Simulated assay, not measured.
Amino acid sequence: MRSITDDHGRPWEAVAIPTKVAHLRDGAQLGFRVAGDPAAAVTAPITFNSLDAANFAIQTMSEKELRRRLELAKTAAGVA
């Protein structure tokens, strides 16, 4: 998990969400949730082959890239 702030100053957490990926293998998807509200979540169309890979990517991704992915995920989900 990693904390970021969106363009409106709202705090979010970037998280790895366990999901089935290619060939129905266990993997993860990049997700974002409003800090303190796990029910308010959006996902990005980015999948990883494992939870470890997803967590590594989240920790090493630039803040600019995380914020860009968050904005794309919010737009796709219709969240302001």
Rank of each mutant, 00 (worst) to 15 (best):
N55I: 03
L24Y: 11
L51V: 05
A14E: 02
F48Q: 12
D37R: 14
D7E: 03
R68T: 08
T47G: 08
H8A: 06
G31R: 10
L24I: 06
F56R: 15
T43W: 10
P45K: 02
V21Y: 10
G78M: 03
P38N: 12
L66K: 13
L66Y: 06
A44I: 10
E71L: 02
H23A: 08
I46P: 00
A73N: 05
I17R: 07
T43A: 13
D52M: 11
G78H: 11
S50M: 11
K20M: 00
L30I: 11
Q29P: 01
L51H: 11
Q59R: 11
E65A: 07
A16S: 12
Q59S: 15
N49T: 07
L66C: 00
T5W: 02
W12P: 00
A73G: 05
A76C: 12
M61P: 06
T43V: 11
I4C: 00
V34T: 15
T19H: 01
Q59G: 12
A40T: 15
A77G: 08
G27K: 12
S50D: 04
R10D: 04
N49P: 04
V42N: 01
E63M: 04
G27E: 10
A54P: 00
R25V: 04
M1Y: 02
R68Y: 13
S62H: 13
S62N: 09
S3V: 05
V34L: 12
A44K: 07
A22W: 10
F56A: 15
L24H: 09
F32Y: 04
R69L: 06
L30K: 12
A77H: 09
E71H: 10
L24G: 09
V21L: 05
D6V: 01
A54C: 15
P18H: 03
A57V: 02
T43M: 08
V79T: 04
A40L: 15
E13I: 06
I58T: 11
L70S: 00
D26A: 15
V15K: 04
H23Y: 10
R33W: 04
T5I: 03
L72Q: 15
N55R: 15
R10H: 00
